[in-house]
Amino acid sequence: MSVLDIAKGMGVTLGHLFKRPVTVRYPEQPVDVKPRFRGRHHLLRHPSGLEKCIGCSLCAAACPAYAIYVEAAENDPDDPVSPGERYASIYEINMLRCIFCGMCEEACPTGAIVLGHEFELADFVYQDFTYGKDDMLVGVMGSKWQRREATQKGRDVRVGLSSGPRPELEGVDY
């Protein structure tokens, strides 16, 4: 190793001193996740406002971590929750068990469940990791903890993403 080699190495260091840093000041700054990143699940609705989920339990069957529990019920024809006869009366995902593999999304015959970009799911109590329909239906932003903090502090839910929703979810604002 010669003096020249050391100078070369220091040159690289010096060069980087004047470049933009790649580290992100998370959580002060939001992060940018990749388009196909798989985070917290969203349950989508049809443009008519009806839920896409029909409570068929195929996601639960496909789930390798047994994280999903579904109970179905019959729609009231006058006030349906979803198109057709059947809807999910209970839809729960245990986020501690979930491995975010996206098999549920692949199994879903109606495209009702989609893994979004939200990833900040840390919480304090086991039972708070069980997300129900109210926590996942499209329009709900943030994890249970983030929403709890927002209500307590009386401000909007703040999620640490800058990339916006997944392409599948873009334009779904009902």
Binding site: G55, C56, S57, A60, A61, A72, A73, E74, E85, R86
Partner: peptide
């Protein structure tokens, strides 16, 4: 038992 569960469950 309408919609109470799927057969594999």
């Amino acid at each position: 038992s309408r919609f109470r569960g799927r057969n594999w469950e």
